[in-house]
Nucleic acid binder design. Structure first.
Length: 456
DNA sequence: GCATGATCATGC
DNA sequence: GCATGATCATGC
């Protein structure tokens, strides 16, 4: 998010925190933190949030170094969202920031107030609320620092002054949510918790909490999640996702990428097509706006990928993973590695196949949902362990080749020879990443097609 | 023709 | 500035 967030972590640390947060999206606490229940947090005020904070503390190096005090530097707020009637995410509740101390607030200026301090460092995590579900199984929908636009900050300050004004004129008992626009003094427990004294009047008042109103949280959700649902006709209203996607793509099977670019008005004659053309085509076929995420895919953690198959059924080029860090690789067991996490990625493979006659002309062929089968994980593990061994032995330059491993290999993925990463033995080596072998992917596509799971 | 290493280039 | 997807170049 914007760099103008008032935030005391260094920006590199901040990026690291955001990366940890983004890693939660599409997953659950059970997935990422291997927690089965919140029992061990049950003494906390909010066990769910406590578990999330612990996950962050364990996952982010800068946060570890903050020695548990990082809560001063950032405020993690998990809040529930649900699927609204039109299929878009909506806020479920208000977002509570903290209790209003009727006495403390009297001589506190806005600049040092709880609300002002909180909103400059809010890390918002939205999770999909499901009734009767163990919170460790809630799926996170989006996560990011919240950069508050100036116009919002101004309104929030005015709201704050309105509430403080009532307290400092002895009218805390007259506070109402209707007084304010974005920020409210929320009676969290209603009258259930009884009343408390207020400093400048004998009349007791209901205890209140600072909270962003539901409508304001709703706008946050809209701003932060640009995900859209895949379009459905009446007839398609109850179709399972895979069948829905297949039906959408079916209409366009046989067209070339150029045809589709033209059909959807994404290309102009004489102009070079955008590089992201295939990604744009996928969006159009599914009826989702260009700049939107696809809600169903976000929820299920599916990534759409275009695969161009040559006539022999082998992808034109292999699929790469993000670059790895030699020092991290040397000390991280496979089970805890980023690579292990990437292997669990679910894909929607949008497959184009090379024309039988015209070289370099690719036609839309089919779509497949694919995830690396569990039974192949040990083979990928061998690739990881072998590369790890080489790095430890001082041979980061020696990649595990595609001929050495059935599923994956290692190859350079830097900008050029100068784009290096430090090794544990102090010699920089060109950046590398793990890649799926082209032949392995070819085999998987063939396996799914012959299994009759093909769509399209 | 393929495997492997290296680099380009677009878009965020 | 960098990651990622795309592509080139070399050698067997």
């Amino acid at each position: 998010m914007d760099s103008d967030v008032r935030y005391s972590l260094e920006s590199a640390d901040k990026r690291s925190v955001v990366a940890v947060a983004q890693n939660l999206v599409g997953k659950t606490l059970r997935d990422v933190a291997r927690i089965d229940s919140l029992d061990s947090f049950s003494s906390e005020e909010d066990p769910f949030e406590a578990a999330i904070i612990q996950y962050f503390a364990n996952s982010s190096k800068p946060l570890c170094e903050y020695d548990g005090a990082f809560e001063r530097a950032l405020s993690i707020k998990a809040f529930p969202v649900k699927i609204g009637r039109n299929g878009q995410l909506v806020a479920k509740d208000r977002l509570v920031l903290g209790k209003i101390g009727f006495s403390d607030i009297l001589d506190e200026p806005w600049e040092t107030s709880l609300v002002r301090k909180q909103y400059g460092k809010l890390l918002l995590l939205a999770y999909l609320y499901e009734p009767c579900t163990n919170p460790v199984d809630y799926i996170f929908q989006f996560a990011d620092f919240w950069a508050m636009p100036d116009e919002d900050a101004y309104t929030i300050q005015r709201d704050w002054e309105t509430v403080v004004g009532k307290i400092s004129s002895g009218r805390a008992h007259e506070i109402s949510s209707g007084d304010t626009l974005y920020l409210e003094a929320y009676a969290k427990d209603g009258l259930a918790s009884g009343t408390v004294p207020q400093p400048l009047s004998d009349i007791p008042a209901i205890p209140r909490y600072w909270a962003f109103k539901k409508s304001f949280v709703m706008s946050l959700v809209h701003r932060m999640s640009d995900a859209q649902k895949i379009s459905r006709s009446k007839l398609q209203s109850t179709l399972p996702l895979s069948e829905l996607v297949r039906q959408h793509f079916d209409k366009y099977v046989g067209y070339t990428e150029e045809d589709l670019g033209e059909i959807f008005g994404l290309t102009q004659k004489g102009k070079r097509p955008p590089k992201s053309l295939s990604a744009l085509i996928t969006r159009r076929i599914l009826g989702v706006a260009e700049d939107s995420k696809i809600l169903e895919f976000e929820k299920a953690g599916i990534v759409a990928k275009t695969i161009r198959l040559k006539r022999n059924g082998v992808p034109k080029y292999p699929m790469s993973f993000p670059k790895f860090d030699y020092c991290k690789l040397a000390v991280t067991p496979f089970e805890d590695s980023d690579f292990r996490g990437y292997l669990e990625q679910k894909y929607l493979l949008v497959i184009f196949r090379e024309d039988d006659e015209v070289r370099n002309e690719y036609h839309l062929d089919s779509v497949l949902f694919w995830q690396m089968p569990e039974s192949d994980i040990p083979e990928a593990r061998r690739c990881y362990k072998e590369m790890q061994r080489r790095v430890r032995d001082g041979h980061a330059d020696q990649s595990v080749k595609a001929t050495e491993n059935r599923c994956c290999h290692v190859r350079p993925h830097g900008r050029n020879a100068e784009d290096t990463c430090m090794t544990p033995y102090g010699v920089p080596v060109i950046k590398k990443s793990f890649w799926f072998n082209s032949k392995y992917i070819a085999g998987e596509i063939q396996r799914l097609n012959t299994k009759g799971l093909s769509v399209g």
